[in-house]
Each structure stands twice: as structure tokens, then as C-alpha cells.
Design a protein around this nucleic acid. Structure first.
Length: 544
DNA sequence: ATTACTCGCGCC
DNA sequence: CGGCGCGAGTAAT
């Protein structure tokens, strides 16, 4: 495409430049969009359409001809499945593959010309042709690698390929622009006036460190929230609170302020984010332009209330304690599995275990602090030092918690050791679908990675299978696919009021199908609520 | 003036 | 202690 803006490549805009098409070794560069329908008729018997980043091409091609769902081999997605964790996530461009497999350096300079010119030069034609030719060559290399590994490609066939089609069908999400402007104004005024009072630029860690030293004599290594809170007694509770509040107000202004609205809100107050199906080495989604997966939910809950329904109601569904269930399944730990079999609260039971006190109840504050934290830690890698830092306790106490935890959940300790030795022997670990995540043992965090990766990657498998099962169901039932957001263990739909009940049922059933497919009898629970806003707590009040 | 990097923080 | 994206500030070019 000619004349496309950076950061908007997922949006249909710009003028048609060319389409390069290869059939085997032969390459054409088509410069007339009117020829596209005939061209696609000609090539439609192909077993696969090979793409490099199919979502970009399909989104653009959809402007000129229908692009029905059909088998595709997306070399970029395949590459991420083959080498997740081996290369960093920004090393999966075509030129990276070409360099690695073929030892050829690609000249990406001509690509830059497309955004500023409106006709094809010879150099650009050559570039476009080379692009598609090398995509084919990369595909051949991938086939060799897959054969060498005797890899079944289950993760691609069952999860990633359907996921591409589902993601192409995502709908935009609506925001409350008027209220957003008002809120930003309010937060900006408060933030700037607080910053004036303080007399320091809180966005500058250097200046803020200096300020704290000059005013209180306390030297801090950094100005993270956690550090300031730990040192609150020395610095002064009131000052710390004021600094933190100012920082969070300034953040609201900079990240979610007027610039956000101007950049990302399109006609009808709709936001079209770029969801990348394989945005991480573990297979999780990532989202950008804008990132809708890190909209404040806890610190400034008002922001999620600015995401509203365009069709009638939002349905918000999220999986309960997904990762502890997956850990229970992968480890096979009897005590952990029993918690879920009995439908008990995992945080409470774990709190009882680490404090060796069976009288602890769900409302005990230790459940939310120590219990929840150790459950997070169990899927993040479990180190005593990390736990001590997080809970701001002595190392010895953290060690005691871990000792007690592993005494009760000995299967988790065995799982941990299995993952360490697998990572040591093979340099990779695997998810429930066989998704491979390479572990670099020269990385200081390799042990954490070898525990976390199978859990996080299996969670991604589950969410994606849930999503694509639901997508299929919508196609079969000939109803709109109403997904507007996907946030790791959560799917949000925007549906007409009269179809709320229908979609809730479909979503719940799809989730159970997906959970059963990968995790058999391990019980999974889905929380499903609906309302006019994307706000976790408030929704129930509006229900029905 | 532009680019690359660090720090910090939002989410799960 | 795991995984991301993004903005401001700062240092290097």
C-alpha cells in the first residue's frame, strides 16, 4: 500500500500499490487492483496460501475482494511457534528469517518509500517480488525444521490458524468520549497542581531521587512505588502518598489523556486496536495502537467504565483462578487438584498451608496478601528472595512459607524439578498443546521461565481454543462474532440486549469445550456478567 | 535533531 | 518471582 501511516498498519487505509504473488518459484507483481478478483480465482485451488504476517495482507485485500476463510500457512506465526523464546519477539520479521535460514541480508530500505510515493519504481517492484520469493524459501526451510523435529504442528493447526481468522473478525470497542475528556481534564488539573505543590518533576526518576534526598536525607535506589512504600517511615508517610498520587495522575494524563483520544478514536467513537495473535514467546496475545490489555482496572477504575457498549450490552467473561488450575493439572499434585475438585477457594487453602493454620477463613487478610501472592509466585517461578521482596518480609520467613507450601503440595516441587531438568536437557519446555517455548539457560531467570512458560503457554492455549470454538459456533449458527476484547483470561463481547442470554450460553459452552479438550476432568469455572460498561465490579449491579 | 536506552507502571 | 506496550527523561550519536 502507498501512503500508510506508522502505527496504523492494522487499519485499512492508503492506496493500492501492488500485490506480489508467487506460484512456486514464479513471481508476479500485480499493480492493478482490478485484476485481483481474477487472480484469486486462478490461485484458489492451491493447498495453502503462504503469507508472511497474513493478518496485514488479508485486512488490506478485504478492501478489494472477499477473503473467505481458507487454509493458510503464515510463515511468521509458524516461525513464532517454532522458535518462541529462542529469539526475542521483535526478531520475527521476514528479514530476520531470511538472515537465519538463508544467510541473506535483505535490503529493507525500499519499503520506506511506499509511505511517501504513489507509483512503483523498478527498485520497489524488485523489492516486492523478492519479498514473496523469499517467503516461499522460508517456508521450505520451515518444512525441513518441522520434519527434523518430527513436530506434529498441532499448535498451529488446532490453535493458531483458527485464531488468525477469529482475530480478523474482532469488532471495534466503543468509548465514552465526552466523559473521557472531562475525566482527563479533572485528573490533569489535579496532577499538575499537586506537582506544583511538591516542586519536583515526578516523571523524572533522577530529579525525584535528588528531591527526596535533599528534603528528607533518605537515599533510595529507585523511585518505584514499592520502594517508596517500604521506605515510607523514613521519608514520611504523607510525602510518599502525595508523590505516588501525583505520579499516578501524571500517568493518567500522559498515557490515557487527550493524545490517546486523538490517536485512536475513530468515527462512531470506536477504537480499533491491533491484536497480535502471537504477541509473546509463550503464545499469549499482545495488543497495541492502543494497548487495550493494560487499561487501568484497579488503580483508576474509572477508565474501564469509559469502555461502553455500541450494540446494547457488554458481556464480560473471565476464567477463575486459571493458572493455579493449570498448575494442578500439569503437576498432577493431589492436594492442589483436590482443592478444585471440591470447588474450594485456592487462595484460602494455600494460606492455611503456609501458615499451618486450618482455621483461616476466606475473609482473613492473610488470604489476599500471602495466599494470593504465593499462588502467583507458584506460576511465576517461586524463589524465596522474590517472595520476600514482594511481601516485604525477611528471607527466612519467605523460606518458611515455601517449605510449608511444598510440604503440602509436594507434587508442585516435583513438577518444578521436572521442568528444570527438561529445560536443562532439551533447552525447551512445552505447553499442554505441545507449544514449544525455548529456555535460555544463560538467562538468570531460566529456572523461573521453565516453570512459568508451560503454565502461561497452556493458559494461552486454553484462551485461544475457547475463542476459536466460540468463533466456529458463531459461524455454524450464522450469528455475528461479537468479540471486542481479549485479555489473557478474559473475553468481552458487545451484543444486542435481546441476545445477551444466547451469547452468554454460547460463550460458557465454548469455554467448557476448550477446557475439557486440553485439561480433561480438571474443573474450570467461568465468571460471566453483563452491563453497559467494561467494569468488573460494577457490572453485577446492572445485571438484567 | 534524531535515536537508543532506562526507568517506571498499567494489565493478566 | 513470569509475560507484555508505552511514555517521559536522559544519554549517545
Amino acid at each position: 500500500m502507498f501512503g500508510q501511516q506508522e502505527g496504523k498498519l492494522h487499519r485499512p487505509h492508503g492506496e493500492f500499490a501492488c500485490l506480489s504473488v508467487g506460484i512456486g518459484e514464479d513471481v508476479w507483481v500485480v499493480q492493478d487492483a482490478a485484476q485481483l478478483p481474477d487472480l484469486f480465482k486462478l490461485v484458489s485451488p492451491a493447498k495453502y496460501f503462504l503469507y508472511y504476517n497474513s493478518m496485514y495482507d488479508i485486512r488490506q485485500l478485504r478492501r478489494f475482494l472477499p477473503m473467505p476463510q481458507r487454509p493458510i500457512w503464515d510463515c511468521m506465526i509458524v516461525e513464532k511457534i517454532l522458535w518462541g523464546g529462542y529469539f526475542s519477539i521483535n526478531e520475527f520479521a521476514l528479514n530476520d528469517c531470511v538472515r537465519r535460514y538463508l544467510n541473506i541480508k535483505m535490503d529493507k530500505e525500499p519499503r520506506k518509500q511506499f509511505s511517501v510515493v504513489s507509483h512503483m519504481s523498478d527498485e520497489m517492484i524488485h523489492y516486492a517480488a523478492t519479498d514473496v520469493y523469499l517467503t516461499y524459501k522460508v517456508y521450505l526451510e520451515q518444512l525441513k525444521e518441522i520434519a527434523k523435529r518430527r513436530y506434529d504442528m498441532k499448535t498451529y493447526d488446532l490453535i493458531e490458524e483458527p485464531c488468525i481468522w477469529a482475530t480478523l473478525d474482532f469488532k471495534p470497542v466503543k468509548v465514552n468520549v465526552k466523559r473521557w475528556h472531562e475525566m482527563v481534564k479533572e485528573l490533569t488539573i489535579r496532577g499538575r497542581s499537586l506537582e506544583n505543590d511538591l516542586g519536583v518533576n515526578v516523571n523524572s526518576h533522577q530529579q525525584l531521587k535528588e528531591f527526596i534526598k535533599n528534603n528528607t536525607g533518605v537515599k533510595v535506589d529507585n523511585v518505584q512505588e514499592e520502594t517508596l512504600l517500604i521506605n515510607a517511615n523514613k521519608i514520611g508517610k504523607e510525602l510518599v502518598d502525595k508523590i505516588l498520587l501525583t505520579k499516578s495522575l501524571r500517568k493518567a494524563e500522559s498515557t490515557y489523556g487527550e493524545k490517546w483520544l486523538a490517536n485512536f478514536v475513530e468515527d462512531g467513537d470506536l477504537v480499533y486496536a491491533d491484536f497480535k495473535t502471537v504477541g509473546t514467546e509463550t503464545g499469549r496475545y499482545a495488543c497495541s495502537n492502543p494497548n487495550l490489555q493494560n487499561i487501568p482496572a484497579h488503580k483508576i477504575p474509572e477508565y474501564r467504565q469509559l469502555f461502553i457498549s455500541a450494540k446494547g450490552r457488554l458481556i464480560v467473561a473471565d476464567a477463575q483462578a486459571q493458572e493455579p488450575r493449570i498448575l494442578a493439572h500439569l503437576s498432577g499434585d493431589k492436594a492442589l487438584k483436590q482443592i478444585f475438585a471440591d470447588g474450594q477457594d485456592v487462595h484460602t487453602i494455600v494460606t492455611r498451608a503456609i501458615f499451618k493454620d486450618d482455621t483461616i477463613t476466606k475473609s482473613d487478610p492473610r488470604r489476599d496478601r500471602e495466599g494470593k501472592t504465593i499462588n502467583l509466585a507458584s506460576s511465576y517461578g517461586l524463589s524465596a528472595q522474590g517472595l520476600a521482596d514482594k511481601l516485604n518480609i525477611e528471607l527466612a520467613d519467605a523460606e518458611t512459607f515455601l517449605r510449608n507450601y511444598f510440604a503440602k503440595f509436594s507434587g508442585v516441587a516435583a513438577f518444578r524439578d521436572r521442568m528444570y531438568s527438561q529445560a536443562n536437557r532439551f533447552e525447551y519446555v512445552e505447553s499442554i498443546s505441545g507449544r514449544r517455548v525455548w529456555v535460555n539457560r544463560h538467562n538468570y531467570a531460566w529456572q523461573n521461565n521453565s516453570i512459568n512458560a508451560p503454565i502461561q503457554a497452556s493458559a494461552a492455549d486454553l484462551l485461544k481454543t475457547w475463542l476459536t470454538t466460540f468463533h466456529n459456533r458463531c459461524i455454524i449458527d450464522k450469528v455475528e462474532f461479537p468479540v471486542v476484547l481479549v485479555v489473557h483470561d478474559e473475553i468481552v463481547l458487545d451484543v444486542p440486549l435481546e441476545q445477551v442470554a444466547l451469547y452468554k450460553t454460547m460463550l460458557k459452552e465454548s469455554f467448557q469445550v476448550a477446557a475439557h479438550k486440553w485439561f480433561g476432568d480438571m474443573p474450570f469455572e467461568l465468571d460471566v456478567v453483563h452491563g453497559t460498561k467494561w467494569s468488573c465490579k460494577k457490572l453485577n449491579e446492572e445485571a438484567d
